[in-house]
Design a protein around this nucleic acid. Structure first.
Lengths: 146, 146
DNA sequence: TCTTACCTTACCGCACAGGTCGGGATTCGT
DNA sequence: ACGAATCCCGACCTGTGCGGTAAGGTAAGA
């Protein structure tokens, strides 16, 4: 039950973009440094985010990435699903799949708790936006990270 | 963010034991069949459950395993922690470790949501007991599974 | 037309999940 | 006393997916 680095880095990058929102496209190298993610790996992560319509890219010199919507309108849950797939602590309670498809004969007792768990996770991730995160952060970063 | 089969099988086995609670020790073969877990693998999973004091074992003929406490007093969260380790969607928000130890300079904004997520998961798992699960299960199993 | 930057595909090592196997130690029934 | 049932324990194995790196192609501004 760990979030992989895809989700971790993806969210960090989106938070960086949220802080820079309104300043035009930011090149990959800047985002990578600000969010402390290897640039070559981050490049790979931006692809699904772009395809999902969460960021827009500008090619060529002075190009880069920027949020497709203001930070208040981007839910953490959206980012999470793009990076990690459907929210589900267990395959039998996937969000997308047909509900109530339990392979066990007449369902198993454990499914109850996995369902509750999934709903709880969805609630947290979908009720938080990028704007919430940058607003609640301890303080804005004053200096470049090492 | 998937629960591994250790957690899944471990909980299923504990639910089986909860249904059989009060009938004395149940051999591995019976638990394995009832919970649909490979017996050789289940054996491996019972070891940490025993060491954690959640089940007690009886050796020799007519031996087996049984719950150490009645199902009402066994929280799903306890089983989960034994099988999967400390509850934490991300290492920086582990239950055990020193709180507020974020490797990033002055903390990062994303940590907020991971903390909320962890607390939410803990709440669900620790507020559910084995007794809750067998009480809410659709119906008791009438016949042996295939 | 050169440089900047995004876009895409291919590759790759290794840790870990998810088991299996074999043998030893205990206890019960007879 | 002895054998069957059963737990106990460590060694081993195998595929998958995470967490990247590398190398080139394409678009757009200066």
């Amino acid at each position: 039950m760990k979030v992989s680095t895809r989700g971790e880095y993806g969210l960090r990058a989106m938070v960086s973009l949220a802080r820079m929102y309104g300043r035009g496209p930011m090149p990959l190298s800047v985002i990578a440094q600000d969010s402390a993610v290897p640039v070559a790996y981050l490049e790979q992560l931006m692809l699904p985010l772009r395809r999902a319509g969460l960021v827009v890219s500008t090619r060529g010199a002075h190009g880069g990435y920027q949020l497709a919507r203001p930070p208040e309108q981007v839910k953490v849950g959206e980012i999470y699903r793009v990076m990690e797939g459907p929210i589900a602590p267990m395959d039998c309670v996937r969000e997308d799949a047909d509900e109530d498809t339990c392979p066990m004969i007449d369902g198993c007792a454990t499914r109850i708790v996995w369902l509750k768990l999934r709903d709880s996770i969805v609630e947290v991730l979908d009720s938080t936006t990028l704007a919430d995160l940058i607003a609640q952060a301890p303080r804005a970063r004053a200096e470049q990270p090492v």
